[in-house]
């Protein structure tokens, strides 16, 4: 009896769930594997996922899978079947930066792109009422005169803001100590409390408390980024050549699927995500958080991500330089 029932159940389940892989994709919930802990960026991905789900006719929950600078989420998603039911929330850190640093063995070419999602520019900010300097040049002069004395935070160690800030500091010959924090908010809190000298400040954080920060340098050459910080000086104003352009100095994510995902399945997802990203309500909700909705589709993936990978690869020595210099001072 028991056996019969089991077999019957199994058969029922098979016919329900395992009909030929992509007859009417998607038949069920599609999951987005998100590489960070819960926070603002998760909410942004949820906005896109919700809209995309509406376009697909199924739910798209976003699953937070933090660990090892985002690579845990990537490995987790890679171990899932290539059936289109798993989307990689392809943040630049696990997608490009960690491979560049030698911490992951894939490249951006190992994935099938769906559509670009969002970017998030950042800046170097100090606190209001700082007496030791008035602008970025002043900060650099102070740093040069006091090697190893400045404390800053890029959030985590060896993340994209760290790399870009280290590159800027390297170009000025300034050695400063990065202090890693669990969440960016804690770092900004300590900046305001006078424990840190400067910190990376993204647009969202700036919008929340414009009076609390003195934005010293916007780390992007894009005019839009400068405008988000109410016209604070950017790397173009300072004539700093970081060798970084476009998306390279900022955070962004490009949603992807497993490389072996069938094309027709990927196309369904691409079309849905494109429609979602073109919706005004989605764009508006993303912009409110201080993120920038992106509208490159999958055909532009190589053209946009390729140069980022090249540029980040070329400046990966900035982190090593900072470590070396800090060791010398000890």
């Amino acid at each position: 009896m028991l056996k019969k029932l089991l077999v019957a159940g199994a058969l029922a389940a098979m016919t329900l769930g395992a009909s030929p892989v992509h007859a009417e994709f998607p038949e069920r919930t599609v999951e987005n594997i998100f590489p960070w802990s819960a926070g603002t960026a998760l909410s942004v991905s949820q906005v896109i996922a919700k809209a995309m789900g509406e376009e697909l006719g199924v739910s798209v929950p976003v699953i937070s899978t933090p660990g090892a600078a985002g690579t845990k989420a990537f490995i987790t998603a890679m171990n899932r079947p290539a059936d289109g039911y798993t989307i990689f929330d392809g943040y630049v850190a696990p997608l490009v930066l960690q491979p560049v640093l030698g911490n992951a063995d894939w490249t951006y070419k190992d994935f099938k792109p769906l559509h670009s999602a969002v970017s998030n520019a950042f800046s170097i900010g100090g606190r209001k009422g700082e007496t030791r300097w008035t602008d970025f040049e002043g900060l650099m002069a102070y740093g040069k005169a006091n090697p190893g004395k400045l404390r800053y935070s890029s959030g985590s160690r060896n993340n994209l803001p760290h790399m870009v800030i280290a590159k800027v500091l390297q170009s000025y010959g300034v050695v400063a100590q990065n202090i890693p924090y669990k969440t960016d908010g804690d770092a900004r809190k300590d900046l305001k409390a006078g424990v840190l000298d400067f910190s990376f400040v993204n647009v969202g954080a700036y919008l929340q408390d414009k009076e609390g920060f003195e934005i010293l340098l916007v780390l992007s050459e894009l005019p839009g980024a400068k405008a988000s910080y109410d016209g604070a000086p950017s790397i173009t104003d300072m004539n700093i050549d970081l060798g970084l352009s476009g998306l390279a100095p900022m955070g962004w994510t490009w949603w992807l699927v497993h490389k072996d995902t069938p094309d027709d399945v990927a196309d369904v997802l691409r079309a849905a995500m494109k429609r979602a990203m073109n919706r005004d309500d989605v764009k508006e909700q993303i912009s409110r958080v201080g993120f920038v909705p992106l509208d490159w589709d999958h055909t532009q993936y190589d053209e946009i991500v390729g140069p980022v990978a090249g540029q980040l690869g070329a400046m990966s020595n900035a982190l090593a330089w900072e470590e070396e210099e800090l060791k010398k001072l000890r």
């Binding site: 029932l5 159940g9 389940a13 098979m14 329900l16 769930g17 395992a18 892989v21 038949e27 069920r28 919930t29 999951e31 739910s59 929950p61 079947p81 059936d83 039911y85």
Partner: peptide, 29 residues
């Protein structure tokens, strides 16, 4: 069977959790 499928229904249909499908990808839409 009632316990198993009621809970599966609650979590899958309402909380949008995708329960393990195994190598056959058995999931109830």
């Amino acid at each position: 069977a009632l316990i198993a499928f009621t809970l599966a229904y609650f979590f899958e249909a309402h909380l949008k959790v995708v329960l393990p499908g195994g190598i056959y990808g058995l999931n109830i839409p």
